[in-house]
Amino acid sequence: MRKIVFGLFASVLSISFVATNASANATEASPQQLNIYSARNEALIKPLLDQFAAQHDVTINLVTGKADALLARAKSEGRFSPVDIIITTDVGRLSRAKSQGLTQPITAVLPDFVTLQDPQQHWVALTTRNRPIMINPKKIAPGEITRYEDLLKPEYKGRVCVRSSTNIYNQSMVAAMLIQQGEALTLAWAKGLVDNFARRPKGGDRDQIKAVVAGVCDIALANTYYLAAMRNADAESVAIANQVKVVWPNQSDRGVHLNISGIAVAKYAQNTDIANQLITFMLGQQAQDWYAKTNHEYPVDPKIEWSSTLQAMGTFTSENVELNQVGELNAKALQIMDKSGWQ
């Protein structure tokens, strides 16, 4: 009896497996196909892709994953790779895709507000993401910390939390510092920061924010959208996130660290027309508004209104560096972090 039940169960599942994948094949009869490798999670890209698909009568096929793994896949697939569009959440990966010869220039006419792009237009930024300092205002007085360099002060020994240097956001931050401050100062900064660590780096950005509130440390480095997401989540997260204050560092000099999420057309794209149309769409009002309101990222279009959470965090000046260089210096940045003992 049990065997029969299991057999039935297995066959129902197998049939539905075949059916779902057959129906996926059937939709491929649609006139236009657009294949996307996305380092952005499905939940943070699919809603927009669905809108685009409906507006342009195109079938979108998506694979998500880690950026470098997807790039390695595109590379080994070579000229027969089906990928048309590459989406990443970090500038380092975009410049790496370009230097590995996996991209081609974007031919779409980009809006005037677009400034964050590759000089040869191999990639373009869709949103910006900043990495300010977050503090416990009960422990740190206003104006006490105004620069990233302030985190090295001896009074902050054992009071700083930041995630592992394996994380790409930290690597890009140090790479950007490397461009602006040079190797010696950057290494000294990293060493000083490590000296002030409250604990061995662990967890994600949200964990650093939680650690500040839990009293493990008083200062953290984290991307803004994590804090914004927490302020729009369940009551417990909101309560934690509201006890943390954002400090925009280096406002009188180089500005707060800036990274981007971006998009590129693949070198061997089959359908460059529709790929370029997608890029225009992603820079359009509808998509930009969605990122600003739903995912609390800063839109590249200055006309788009930020979410109220982002507005409450205040305005700021971002650093101005050549973004391709940030990508190129990623390895160097990691080596500096290795030397500083930042695990």
Partner: peptide, 16 residues
Amino acid sequence: GISTFTTGIFRTWFGM
């Protein structure tokens, strides 16, 4: 956040 051989592999690949 424990640095093991595996995290080292990914650090080397992704980071560098």
